[in-house]
Design a protein around this nucleic acid. Structure first.
Lengths: 127, 127
DNA sequence: GGGGGTAGTCACCTCGAGGTGACCTGGTGC
DNA sequence: GCACCAGGTCACCTCGAGGTGACTACCCCC
């Protein structure tokens, strides 16, 4: 198991922490996780995805998909019908990513009560 | 295993995805992961932590620590010496969090070459 | 011909994350 | 008295993420 301490000490390659934080930040942005989760159920077209995700603007869906596609997590396939359709799907890489993410999701789900309790206690102390 | 699809469909509790994305975003911010990794090696005082993390401003260290403390991931202990010292350490919750995070870190480390390759290919296509 | 669905792009705006530097309190050493 | 440490807070600034609405181009149905 890679220890997060490889992150803080330059000996482990100081870039690794940057890469990990970047990955977390990318998934932690407002829409990526929602999109990956939606595509996890199967391929979707642009407007299907838009309806599925909910209140996302065209611009944000378009730009978030572009980032995910660039990183090789999502594939974009133009289907030459009339009118042309565009299908988005998770790549193998995208599907594999869901495994560690689901661990973190599970941890979060299990521990949300503890976090909320800590927060409430902190706030009551701070006034 | 909690599937990320609980995220997208309201039936699973639509708040869960928000909580997961929040967690990812919190860890994905510029400093949290670095701080958690540093404290993973043992408790540190404010300025020790500051030197350890690198080029972080006092304000950002202070505010990031406050958020982590509020969420119960980090503890803050004032030691009544002269001058008073403040020691920061991971709580049990913070230590437990490192497990799923290290899975994601491992995935990221292993797959960074694939991501970089995808990015390079995407950029070359796009010009 | 007009309304609607397909998949977007472009220009503009807002708002908060993150950074900078000054300042504070209360020591200790010279 | 003066400088310097610890551990911060406060006021101010910048810059980019994310949002809004208009616009494109093409086709189908009524």
């Amino acid at each position: 198991m890679v220890d997060t301490r490889t992150c803080a000490r330059p000996e482990g390659g100081e870039g690794s922490c940057g890469a990990i934080a970047d990955m977390l930040a990318r998934l932690g942005d407002k829409w990526s996780l929602l999109i990956v989760a939606s595509l996890g159920e199967g391929p979707l077209r642009f407007n299907e995805l838009r309806r599925h995700v909910g209140e996302i603007s065209q611009k944000m869906l378009s730009s978030t998909l572009k980032v995910l596609e660039r990183d090789g997590l999502v594939s974009r396939t133009v289907i030459a019908t009339v009118p042309p359709q565009v299908e988005y799907a998770l790549t193998d890489l995208g599907r594999e990513l869901r495994v560690p993410v689901s661990h973190l999701a599970e941890w979060t789900t299990v521990n949300t009560p503890r976090i909320l309790a800590a927060r409430a206690e902190f706030d009551s102390r701070a006034g």
